[in-house]
Design a protein around this nucleic acid. Structure first.
Lengths: 245, 245
DNA sequence: TCAATCCGTATGTCCGGACAATCTGACTAC
DNA sequence: GTAGTCAGATTGTCCGGACATACGGATTGA
């Protein structure tokens, strides 16, 4: 069976991208079965009327995503796996929404405060300079799921409480023209203090999952620092890692 | 100031790789300061006697690593950041060793057992078929730090208890010719059961950090399934994420 | 029968060029 | 003075080709 592939040269979408998307869809859809060979690049290029570098670029992007494996002298084949999606810099809100959990947000605090030493260090601003402080309770199905405390440098975006309740922080930042690039995360656990327990409807001393994160944009600026606590009975971090080669 | 770059055409090391390594070293070393422009690709190629695609390939690999940012019409610049290294598929043993913690391992169990439904599903083998089971206690500075329970499909590598005590499982697998490729992880927290507490010198009910992981090799085969528990006072997961674009 | 060698095949690396898209900054027109 | 326009610079995309390198199987030799 031959895979149906075609490219539209009149489209502004790059040819290699058109191809990689079609291949990815075919893999996702099961048309390209795990372990099957993709056919050699030269012939594939000829069939599509493309050059080999263009085809290689398309294939390479899928190799980077972990969907394909190249073997010199053998060919390119579809990875076997239950592999889904590699770890992205995800937002809790999007994660919940994707899981069909109907997330809701209760904004507890939305104000401007002087930066503590810890916050100043994380965001790379002067101590006691003004930063935004946002504290939110994230609910799913009406049940509290996480307590989110975030700090943002001033002048980045305007934090409207209404918008914060309707969507996630990352989405607001992206909409504000910020290109998220990387983040430094730390995930741990500890026992809930009485206040934390109260907020999350847990018993004092119950285990909590904690996450701290500093997010950087594409210029390397810190754009957000957050301290989150999650109810481990309701949430865990799930992700797919790829080996850097 | 001009950056000193050169390539050795007689070396078997690919030219683009030589270049990317030199650039990475310059960034690491601070010779290329954050925010500085890299100079345009054409001129850089001419200076090195390389073609533009080769230079682009070198630059692209650093962009993928998050060290550089390209801007059309502007140029390529070094990212500002406190960015260190993106998340790798790391082994606890290597992590501890890199942190100077002198890890030690106590092998509690090293045997072959029939696969439970959970293990069979994770490894993609038949239920009740034989799998290796390894249970270890990981110590740092003589203090218990984590309890590691792993399952491996049969015939992959031979698990020598002595070797398991001297090094980490991932290192053994790599040494056994297995190319680790990706892993699916889940990180959560829960209260310690009396047995877990005993093993890790914690109080019953104390919070524990838990991690489950299925690791795949480059053909998509599952090569390891593990259930780990960590003492959150001694260990947390730290990593750097890059946004997939 | 088994091992070493050869060869076809496919990817890996590299070249030189062409044109398009986009950003910045300066110039111009209102 | 402000906004729109234009030009230069730089990366993005794409082409067609060349040779190197590694894998696997078939052939050959012991």
């Amino acid at each position: 069976m031959q895979l149906e592939l075609s490219v539209d040269r009149s489209s502004p979408v790059p040819l290699y991208f058109q191809l990689s998307q079609q291949l990815e869809a075919a893999i996702e859809h099961g048309t390209l079965t795990p372990g099957s060979l993709l056919g050699n690049e030269i012939e594939l290029a000829a069939r599509l009327g493309l050059s080999r570098p263009t085809v290689r670029q398309a294939i390479q992007s899928l190799v980077d995503k972990g969907l394909l494996v190249r073997r010199r002298g053998v060919g390119t084949q579809v990875v076997h796996s239950q592999v889904k999606r590699p770890l992205e810099l995800s937002s809790l809100y999007d994660d919940l929404e994707a899981a069909g959990q109907r997330p809701a947000t209760e904004v507890l605090v939305n104000t401007v405060v002087p930066a503590s030493a810890e916050v100043a260090a994380a965001l790379g601003v002067a101590e006691d300079s003004e930063v935004h402080r946002v504290e939110r309770l994230r609910l799913a199905h009406g049940e509290p799921m996480a307590h989110l405390c975030n700090f943002l440098p001033p002048g980045l975006i305007d934090l409207d409480t209404g918008q914060l309740q309707a969507t996630g922080l990352y989405r607001l930042m992206r909409a504000g023209g910020i290109t998220l690039h990387s983040a430094r995360q730390s995930i741990g656990a500890r026992a809930a203090t009485p206040e934390e327990a109260e907020r999350l409807s847990e018993a004092p001393g119950a285990p909590l999952l904690t996450m701290q994160r500093v997010t950087f944009d594409d210029t390397g600026r810190a754009v957000e620092y957050g301290t989150h606590t999650y109810r481990p009975t309701r949430y865990s971090f799930e992700f797919q890692l790829l080996v850097r080669t």
